[in-house]
Design a protein around this nucleic acid. Structure first.
Length: 566
RNA sequence: GACCAUGUAGCUCAGUGGAUAGAGCGCUGCCCUGCGGAGGCAGAGGACGGAGGUUCGAAUCCUCCCAUGGUCGCCA
């Protein structure tokens, strides 16, 4: 990355200044920080290093900055440098260097901005992980999009990524599901279901549909089947539906991991045995307690209930241990409701001698749903929810992904259903980015051939000297930094803001710099054509990292008064 | 009550210890015989919830207070 190159140049200048006694001797071997100034008048890059060295060098910051500028190499990437403000060193990059980067982007093609930060390490992203008790709701959308987008960005950063979905199809919750299906089925057969309604059942329409399908396929043959068979059937049907919903968002999982298998393999038991052996569990009031207070927590936690059944934290621990054996690094995407549980899991892993530091947890807040100006509280059991499919029908996958990525995971945002439904295409910000891509295609694939302009891959780039061209190249080069930042912070939302900035830089270029106009010198036309091709690559890559389509063209808007009835 | 998160423009939100705090939407102007205007440019609009502290420098780090949301079960 260019920052690293600049850092090397500046630390070289510091050392050169010391040799010339323009600066006193002191040890300096760190990376020089480089900012991208907001204000273009402050250069392409700027460093506050002179201010930071003031104490060490015992000189005024501006004086240090002057010494650095005086000892920068006369030729190379840095075209110009100046001291500004309290002691910033502002740097301007050589326009020829900028222009030459276009060839680098074109050569890289679809692999543009791939990094090697991950260096082939394996990384698992666990997300969604909703138990198959019903269709995915809009409540699951945030975790799904954040997880998949993070996975895409981590792949770009050089990790070998596995997407994993953790679920449990055993337990009371699932028993109630099987029972609910059986009751609906018997009701369809016209049998009395009096007295069968025990426990808390699932009331969603989807149970009805599965029961109807069962009746259509097998008639009354299932009359005397056990509840567990109804449960298995319901789970299969619901999972098929969940996969379909995720597919609409272009999300595919590599592994669906069943919690139950951890019991079968003895891993859950092994965790308990080892914790006991390490004296991290004690028996009290009929239950086994984990010494969470040994890790500074408020109170100890029950790990084995008085009925002998482990609490959910135990298989969670076994699962994470299992993950650490399979992957170099692990990221969990959890909703805020899991916030209390994961510290216990990490503590227990530490107690077991595992390295909890290779587990990152990304907690996202829940989106508050608003309909008719009122908050919608959702419950799968009471069938009081809006499905993710319904949302996708209304708004479309690209807009849903972009909307979710427009918020930092920690923000408590609200999603107004009515507003989303009424949001016409003109107000849809996801289209702003897609349209920029379509424009590149319009120039390259439609307009250029129409005018008989033949793309020249060897064209010289040096005619690119317009401010809008420079700004566009600068913005394209920033994609690498953005990927690196997400890989470091595990916060994928930055890409949505980057995408907007990149599209804006292209639109500005598009407005200021005609590519194909007849009165342009041919050299300029060819250089701009190459720049447009590079922009298409950068925009397509950015959209792909967000899981969005990069369209070749955008359909014309419907005329006024002929709104799409949907 | 405890713990965690969040308070930034009219609204929705970005902001990595650095310069005059940004974007979108909305509002006010301006730019089209053009490579698809679903665009571009400019403007108005801010005590960064409050008070202390650390620092050459704080929206950003620390402490306290206020407000909002989430979680506080031998449910997952």
């Amino acid at each position: 990355m260019i920052q690293h190159e600049l850092s090397t140049i500046i630390s070289g200048a510091i050392h050169a200044a010391q040799r010339n006694e323009a600066l006193p001797p002191f040890v300096f071997d760190g990376e020089v920080p480089l900012d991208r100034p907001r204000d273009e008048a402050h250069g392409d890059f700027a460093t506050p290093v002179a201010m930071q060295l003031a104490k060490l060098a015992r000189r005024a910051p501006r004086q240090i900055a002057e010494a650095i500028v005086a000892h920068l190499p006369a030729q190379g990437v840095v075209a110009r440098a100046e001291v500004a403000g309290p002691g910033f060193v502002n740097l301007w990059i050589d326009p020829t260097w900028f222009a030459a980067q276009v060839d680098g982007i074109l050569d890289a093609g679809a692999a543009y901005a791939n990094l090697e930060l991950g260096a082939g390490q394996t990384l698992q992203v666990e997300f969604v992980s909703a138990n198959p008790t019903g269709p995915l709701t809009v409540g699951h959308a945030r975790g799904a999009v954040l997880g998949d987008t993070l996975a895409r960005l981590m792949e770009a950063a050089g990790y070998e990524v596995t997407r994993e979905y953790y679920f449990n199809n055993a337990g009371l919750q699932m028993e109630a599901l099987g029972e609910s299906l059986r009751i609906r089925y018997l009701a369809l057969l016209g049998e009395s279901t009096e007295g069968l309604t025990i426990g808390r059942h699932y009331e969603g329409d989807y149970i009805q549909w599965i029961a109807a399908a069962l009746l259509a396929l097998h008639g009354d043959a299932w009359r005397d089947k056990a509840i567990s068979e109804f449960k298995d059937l319901a789970v299969d049907a619901i999972f098929a539906h969940i996969r379909h919903t995720l597919n609409r968002l272009d999300i595919q999982f590599d592994i669906f991991f069943n919690e139950d298998s951890l019991y079968g393999s003895g891993e859950v038991e092994a965790v308990l045995a080892e914790l006991k052996a390490r004296d991290m569990l004690y028996f009290d009031e009929g239950a086994w307690w984990f010494k969470a207070t040994a890790f500074g927590k408020e109170k100890d936690r029950v790990f084995v209930r008085s009925n002998g059944v482990p609490t959910y934290r135990v298989p969670d621990i076994a699962y994470h241990r299992n993950k650490l054996q399979r992957f170099d690094r692990v990221v969990d995407i959890f909703g805020a409701d899991h916030k209390d549980a994961y510290p216990d899991v990490l503590d227990a892993l530490t107690a077991l001698g595992e390295d909890g530091s290779s587990v990152d947890v990304l907690i996202h807040q829940f989106t508050t749903l608003v309909r008719d100006g009122e908050e919608v509280k959702m419950s799968t059991r009471r069938a009081n929810f809006i499905t993710l499919d319904e949302l996708l029908d209304e708004v479309g996958p690209d807009a849903v992904r972009y909307f979710i990525l427009s918020y930092a995971p920690g923000s408590h945002n609200t999603f107004d259903i009515d507003q989303a439904k009424s949001q016409n295409e003109r107000e849809n910000p996801s289209l702003y980015v897609q349209y920029a891509h379509a424009r590149c295609c319009g120039i390259l694939d439609r307009e250029a051939p129409k005018r008989g302009v033949v793309y020249d891959a060897d064209a010289d780039l040096s005619p690119l000297r317009h401010e809008a061209e420079r700004a566009l190249i600068r913005e394209m080069l920033r994609l690498r930094e953005m990927i690196a930042r997400v890989a470091e912070s595990s916060e994928p939302h930055h890409i949505a803001y980057y995408a907007r900035d990149l599209a804006a830089a292209f639109n500005n270029f598009y407005d200021k710099c005609p590519v194909l106009r007849d009165d342009l010198p041919n050299e300029l036309r060819q250089a701009r054509l190459k720049l447009t091709a590079a922009a298409r690559i950068a925009l397509a890559r950015t959209l792909d990292l967000m899981g969005m389509v990069a369209p070749d063209e955008i359909a014309a808007p419907a005329p006024e008064g002929e709104e799409d009835p949907q």
